[in-house]
Amino acid sequence: MADEHPLTWRREGAFDPAEAGKLLGRMGHGGFLGMRYGNHGPDWFEAELPWREDLVGAGNSGVLASGPIISLFDNCTSMAIWTRRGRFVPHVTLDLRIDYVRAAVPGRSVIARAECYQLRGDLAFVRALAHDGDAADPLAHAAAIFMVLGDSE
């Protein structure tokens, strides 16, 4: 894939989740939202979305909109796949489902942790949860499927 962006994890060779995670918050939509790398393991990736006034949703309640949480899940699930693969392979989100089990607490960062639990052919299956400080008390759960980008796209 042609890619002229100087700041990128989209290149050949070993995928470094920590390095990619740091770039995540420096460009594009992840940069706009201010995402931060958290941690990673062999098949999982964690990132944080600090609370910000201009990311608040409807109702003047101070609660983070769910849009940024969708984005956080989209990025973390994607990163979890490259983390498990150990290399960057261009892919696209096929579907993403999120269950909101409770509202985020105003003022708190949201942390998402995604695990790539299956790679099969050109499909990758990921599950994730988000919390705002206590992983035992999640605010949302997600499931996503990604597909390796075809030559025609």
């Binding site: 890619d3 990128t8 594009g28 939509h29 992840g30 849009g67 969708i70 984005s71 989209d74 989100t93």
Partner: peptide, 25 residues
């Protein structure tokens, strides 16, 4: 714009999701 860009030159999936959700509301 840069605020909604994912892989270079394309909309971010999360930004697309955020718009869908806003239209749902």
């Amino acid at each position: 714009g840069p605020h909604s860009e994912g892989r270079p030159g394309f909309l971010h999936g999360g930004a697309i999701g955020g718009l869908l959700e806003m239209a749902g509301f």
